[in-house]
Nucleic acid binder design. Sequence first.
RNA 1: GCCCCCUUCGUCUAGCCCGGUCCAGGACACCUCGUUUUCACUGAGGUAACUGGGGUUCGAAUCCCCAAGGGGGCGCCA
Length: 454
Amino acid sequence: MSQVRVRFAPSPTGFFHIGSARTALFNWLYARHMGGKFILRIEDTDKERNSEAFLNVILDSMRWLGMDWDEGPGMGGPHGPYFQSQRTELYRTKLRELADKGRAYEKDGAWWLRLEGARSRAHDEHLKRDYEKVDSPPMVLDDLVRGRVERAEDRDFVIFRSNGEPVFHFVNVVDDIEMRITHVIRGEDHLSNTSKHVELFRAFGVEPPRYAHIPLILKSDGPGKMSKRDQGALIEEYQRRRFLPEAVRNYLCLLGWTPADGKEVLPIGEIVRQFDLKEVHQSNARFDERKMSHVNAQTLRGLPAAEFAALARPILLETKVIDASVSDARLAEVLGIVQEKVISLEHLPEFMGFFFTADFKQDEGAKANLTKKGGDPVARVRELLPALEAAEWTEPALEAAFAAVGAANNRKPTDYFAPVRFGISGQGGGPHLLSVLRVLGRERSLARLRAYAS
RNA sequence: GCCCCCUUCGUCUAGCCCGGUCCAGGACACCUCGUUUUCACUGAGGUAACUGGGGUUCGAAUCCCCAAGGGGGCGCCA
């Protein structure tokens, strides 16, 4: 069997949404799994909306998600150019080829594909009354994910507009032929178009590729498939919100495909190894950002500390939580207790800002919670302070101090936890309190608690 | 209107091809309890589904038919 060649063929509209990303991803996965080629072809035939900036939206997101292409923009390749806008001469040549064969004809200034046999609706006036069903064997498509699908194309259709430009179906097929595409993996919204495409392949006398129509991604709330306008539909949003690209990619894989062993968070190499079109689902999936967040959090936790630090430092610098003077060692100390609790890099600044400044914000919700519980947090801190001041600054010793004060005041040690946390960080949650105290350090911790208690 | 595809917990799904091991398993979310914090961590539990109706069969989530629901396509858009 010859080498697998798949392509992703977006049109640069200025958006790169999650559905396109998933289609690209499945193509990429299949190419990598099969040791084939992944081709990126830009369908920029629509001159109205076509610019370098729009193209870059796509290329940036592709790179961010780690989908590298073997042929296409910036890569070249033996079947270029990879921009349809540069292939217009080819399309004219191919149209002429069909016309010469009698498979294309002109009508109203446009060019139409003539279907074979009785199905062709010639433009003769007397046939124009339209629609009498023509008995013809349906096209049988053996789709790699949907199995046997039957559909008959029963009317001629336009392949070249009267303005001289070819239509999508035509260029798509011509390019797939020229680029030797072996498998077409695309959204189910193209399933009904496939009969047109197969007709075109046959008209050219070329064996059609194998098709795999993958399920669509539905919007998380209302009806219908996800569109550019929906919340969370654009890849760049997740980039901006500092999701890990590998986590977004991982989640996208889960929309329409399931790892055999049920382990959902896994490295891309493992996904490439396991992925197969035969296991792609047939039904549409609803997008769920909460699950994607979960995948993100899990992935974050699994990162080696050095890698986590390399991601965190620029974010903390940018948000002025730290400045360049903060050493790697100090940062590592703080990140060490933060990494397993935080769910997104986006939250890092607010989550750990208090380690680097005493001038932190007080969380109103947490504050309300403190008093709602009935106790007086300031009084608790006052009761505790002497014991902390006397304690050796290690977690076991601090723990013992909490216990002793609790016992002396007939309280649970944990009654002191929330007030202390709030006093030193202004927050209601965070890493384990004893480790926060340890990492924050004795002087800073005590100073903040004294200030809080007064 | 015509055509095509799909249909298991709220959501993502396993199981369906090769009917009994499924009073349906996992994950997210939610709830409860625990972990020396109220937490986004972590641990243990819990609520929750085979769209409906007919068949076939000793037996159906699994096979067949119909209906309903959902999605998509029907353009000189891509």
